[in-house]
Design a protein around this nucleic acid. Structure first.
Lengths: 268, 268
DNA sequence: CAGTGGTCTAGACCACACT
DNA sequence: GTGTGGTCTAGACCACTGC
């Protein structure tokens, strides 16, 4: 029998288009395999907060029943979401919504490493918020965050020290709407990754990011904060971080000292 | 019946350890799922050159027969190898051994992009080999390439120009053994990616690479070649490239100008 | 048309974690 | 033990490619 018109779903799921077996008349109206449709539905539930970061999602068996497909099809959808780091599978326990608040994969997006020793060996970073205020989006910020020039954005600057040595200076911009209520105090008092705070307090989960890296010289302010002179070359890392569905939610410009650390990248 | 002792194979394949169903006595002597073993066997065939870059490998059906497993198990093994960019699947045609010699994915490991416009818009790079000679491995080079200090290595330096502007200066070291016979002329005369030449002429296929990135200032020589002054910050990209089984086969130190280009990285 | 990879199903059994 | 994800199989049908 296989796929015979999976109409009418129990809780959600509009009629899914099965892999063209029965129907499939007309042109090609954006056909996609069943598991891709399941993937989209799971993604939607994630975005709408039906399952929150750190929580378990229903078992493959339950999801299969809910979407009226076989367990194998759900499996393939979940596999892809796990490969994209949106879900985490744990044998014997279940499948969980990924989170930035875990001891394990803290600083998932930070690629700077000490030249010798592991990331953990230097202990947690010391974080100091230098400034934090609301302002109007410049044209450049607006473009990166998909806003209009002049829209309210929250701008912050912070300094990270490793073993007491100032190493990273970051400027960041957040859209005012989703982050209403975020203050310097809130940022300062929070322990753990900033993206964990965004998750917990504002329901904004960063899913992926793009970085553009350049070598630059600091201005006087930047040099002072990083405790280097203005002739010291630094890594400029411009990051745009995205939530679900590729919506940009953060622009971040980092200046990294690379005298004792390096940016690590794996190519394949 | 499922997995009942798949003993005796036709062409290769020592007795595979099935997912523990029947046997599985004794301790846990490094058990691994069947598809992982199949993956290892395919990898071995790739390494030994049974199928060469650009060629088709046998169909999933044939491989399943050869290894005496189901098609689905072969599929999972091939899926992983395709995800690692070792194989390329093409619907309706077959599965091919990945190669660096394709118009499509040229410069697969080069992350430098023009600030505006696509990678292709600036046309092919102009490549000039500045020098190329044999020398003894320094301690540092030996460590990176898994050689002994003093072993013969081939060192080369080349300059890449985009639209006439010198943008990348690269020094690279190759183990003397595998690259016996490589000369400056051979390097200069070759068109297309260097890794394509390595594949075609020396049977060395680069599979993955690690990069360490820093911001540095050039010395006088480097500045002259890149047509910048010695106060211009540059990106230092130190790459170790690996063949099959994580054997290091190249150490490369690149200096990138980032006034019109940037290093792009996608995080997830 | 035949052959390839791609999707989907159904069912069995295993490894692991919690209770 | 019960329930979870992980592996493996067997077979069906679809989509794409090239003869």
């Amino acid at each position: 029998m296989a796929t015979d018109a999976p109409f009418s779903a129990p809780l959600d799921a509009e009629p899914l288009t099965p892999s063209p077996s029965a129907g499939w008349q007309g042109q090609a109206p954006a056909f996609s395999p069943l598991y891709q449709q399941i993937k989209a539905l799971i993604l939607q539930s994630l975005q709408q907060g039906e399952w929150k970061p750190g929580e378990v999602i229903p078992s493959e068996f339950d999801l299969a029943a809910r979407y009226k497909v076989s367990q194998g099809t759900v499996r393939k959808a979940v596999d892809e979401l796990a490969a994209e780091n949106l879900l985490v599978r744990r044998q014997g326990r279940g499948t969980f919504v990924a989170t930035h608040s875990e001891q394990q994969v803290q600083y998932r997006f930070l690629r700077l490493q000490p030249d010798s020793g592991s990331v953990d060996s230097e202990g947690p970073a010391q974080r100091d918020v230098v400034e934090c205020r609301r302002q109007r989006a410049s044209a450049e910020v607006a473009r990166a965050l998909d806003l209009r020039s002049g829209d309210s954005v929250l701008q912050a600057r912070r300094l990270l020290r490793f073993a007491g040595v100032p190493t990273i200076l970051e400027d960041l911009w957040l859209p005012g709407g989703p982050f209403k209520g975020l203050t310097a105090d809130r940022l300062s008092q929070h322990h753990g990754p900033m993206y964990a705070l965004f998750e917990a307090e504002f329901g904004v989960r960063m899913v992926r990011a793009d970085e553009k890296i350049r070598a630059v010289l600091p201005d006087a302010d930047q040099a002072r904060l990083l405790d280097v002179d203005t002739a010291t070359p630094l890594l400029s890392v411009e990051r745009v971080a995205y939530t679900y569905h590729d919506v940009p939610m953060e622009l971040r410009r980092g200046l990294y000292r690379t005298d004792t650390h390096h940016y690590r990248n794996e190519l394949s």
